[in-house]
Amino acid sequence: MRIAARNLVWGVRRRTIVSDVSLDVQEGETLGLIGPNGSGKSSLLRLLAGLRRPLSGRVEIGGQDIASVPRRTLARQVAFVQQSAATDTNVSVRDVVRLGRTPHRSALSGWSAEDETAVAAALDRVDMAGHRAQAWQTLSGGERQRVHIARALAQAPRVMFLDEPTNHLDIHHQIEILRMVRDLDLTSVVALHDLNLAAMFCDRIVVLRNGAVAASGTPEAVLTEALLRDIFRVEAEVGPSSRPGQPHIRFKAG
């Protein structure tokens, strides 16, 4: 599904956090959101996913203004993976993933074969089927992120939004998670803080500064030495990597 945002504005009290943002995400594309801390990445993601209503502007998913789409209908099309989630409840991996079926079930409906198939397929897709009976509290950080994504996949969405899904993970799990997201047959928007990972796994990148779009384009076009100096206030060398069109950033110590 294609995503189109037009002139989005959102804030709290008198502070504007998202300022006149417009962007387009093509069907099947992975778009990366990058920017300094406080640049509005998480707030923009929540606006795009329909979790917050803009003060002005609009978001269309699949050509429909999401403000006019019933919440349950939207939840069948759109999944949101937050940075992290903790629970003290003694639940299994399967129980967590089952929550993804909520938009497809009424209050009185029982658990169906279709629900079970969706959960099993989601666990298979993130390579966690062998952990289905394992307690949530015993999982590693990378495994928990895989389960978060499985829960989102159990919704059977067409679009997925991810808010820094690799936060606090070691580099092996960061690469593993982002490779998995890129290979999903979905339209994805992912907020990231690691610029080299954004270059590796995103088709296009939008750079935010003070809630506004500072740059947009392919990683090769966007991630320049001048932009890194201007937006992130770092000195770096940007050169080619082993993959065409994928720049590699080498930060200077000073």
Results as ranks from 00 to 15, higher is better:
D88A: 12
A152K: 05
L51F: 15
N37C: 15
V189I: 13
Q134M: 13
L162Q: 06
T138C: 03
A150K: 00
S92C: 12
A79H: 01
V119G: 09
G254R: 06
R182K: 10
S39R: 08
H168F: 11
T102S: 15
A199S: 12
T166M: 08
V91W: 07
D203I: 15
V126N: 11
T117G: 09
W10T: 08
E114P: 10
I3W: 00
V97D: 00
A49H: 02
G245C: 07
G130K: 02
A121L: 13
E27D: 11
L139G: 09
A150W: 00
S106V: 14
R52G: 04
R250C: 12
G211T: 06
E116R: 12
P103G: 08
L31H: 07
H173Q: 04
I231T: 12
S39L: 09
L45R: 04
G57T: 08
T224Q: 10
G62W: 03
F161W: 09
Q174E: 13
R146T: 02
S43C: 01
G63K: 13
M200P: 11
A122Y: 06
P70A: 12
Q137I: 14
G141W: 01
V147R: 01
R14K: 03
A198N: 02
P70L: 05
F232N: 12
R158Y: 08
L33F: 03
L186H: 04
F232L: 05
V9Y: 05
L208E: 01
E235N: 11
L223S: 06
A129D: 07
P70F: 11
V222L: 07
I17R: 01
G63P: 00
L23C: 02
V222T: 05
A4Q: 01
R53I: 07
R151K: 13
E114C: 13
F80Y: 15
R105G: 04
M160A: 13
R233P: 10
V206E: 06
N7H: 12
I34R: 02
R233G: 05
L228H: 09
H248E: 15
M180Q: 15
A79E: 02
V81Y: 12
V12P: 02
A120Y: 12
D20C: 07
V207M: 01
P157E: 10
A135D: 11
R76A: 10
I205N: 08
R46N: 14
R53P: 09
A221G: 10
E220G: 08
S42C: 10
A79N: 07
I231V: 14
E164H: 00
G142M: 13
A221I: 10
G141P: 00
L23Q: 09
R72M: 08
P157N: 08
E237L: 13
L208K: 02
G130C: 10
S216P: 02
V147H: 02
L108Q: 02
R101V: 03
V97P: 00
Q246N: 01
A129L: 13
T89F: 07
V18Q: 00
R179N: 15
R158M: 03
S19K: 07
